[in-house]
Amino acid sequence: MEIQTHGEQTENGWWRDVDGFVGPIQPGLGPRTDPMGEFPTGPDIGSRLPDVRAMDVDGNPFDLHRDRGAAPAIVVFFRSAVW
């Protein structure tokens, strides 16, 4: 796995990445560390979603499969609510 480091500096000193996104941090560093090409995407389609045991927003233990019961679900892994 390699890091995507291609970036062009814009007029205001920000950086444009390969997809055209412009931001203050150079691609390949810190919060702009993206993979180039293939990268792991977790369990395969057709397999059961592994257990997700985390915390709810009040810090209580939370079991995703238990909560959803028999409902279908969308499960998002996202970067951060803070940055």
Binding site: Q4, D19, T33, G37, F39, T41, G46, L49, A70
Partner: peptide, 19 residues
Amino acid sequence: TYVIDTDGVITHKFFENNL
């Protein structure tokens, strides 16, 4: 993002290589 069915089986997944 994973989409799972009533049995918890993954039916779709969506990943992008740009944060």
